[in-house]
Amino acid sequence: MREIEVFIDTEEIAEFFFHELMKRGFVPNESEVDELADITFDYLLKKCIIDEELDDE
C-alpha cells in the first residue's frame, strides 16, 4: 500500500455537513456543524485514517 498526503480542513467539513443537513430538512447552527466537524476529525484520527500534524508556525 502506498502512502498519500491528505489535508483535512474542519471548516470544509463543517460547510459540507451544513449543506447536507439543510438538504435533509435540518437547520443546524454554526456551533453545531463546527462540533460535528471536530467529531468527524477525531473519528478519522481514532480509526487511524489520518495522522495529525501540527504546524510549527
Rank of each mutant, 00 (worst) to 15 (best):
R2I: 09
R2F: 07
I4N: 01
I4K: 00
E5G: 03
V6F: 03
V6G: 03
V6I: 15
I8Q: 10
D9T: 01
D9F: 02
E11S: 14
E11M: 12
I13Q: 05
A14Y: 01
A14G: 04
A14R: 05
F16P: 02
F17E: 01
F17C: 05
F18N: 14
F18T: 11
H19S: 12
H19Y: 12
H19R: 15
E20F: 06
L21H: 05
L21R: 06
L21A: 08
M22V: 15
R24D: 05
R24I: 04
R24P: 04
G25S: 04
G25A: 06
G25R: 02
G25N: 03
G25I: 04
G25K: 02
G25L: 03
F26S: 01
F26P: 00
V27P: 05
P28T: 03
P28N: 03
P28R: 04
N29W: 07
E30C: 06
E32P: 02
V33Q: 01
E35S: 12
L36V: 02
A37L: 01
A37E: 00
A37R: 01
D38W: 09
D38C: 08
I39E: 10
T40K: 11
T40G: 08
D42Q: 15
D42P: 06
D42W: 09
D42A: 14
Y43R: 15
Y43M: 13
Y43S: 12
Y43I: 14
Y43K: 15
L44D: 07
L44N: 06
L45F: 07
L45M: 11
K46S: 13
K46F: 09
K46D: 12
C48D: 13
I49N: 09
E52I: 10
E52R: 14
E52F: 09
E53W: 13
L54M: 07
L54S: 05
L54T: 11
D56T: 04
E57G: 10
E57Y: 06
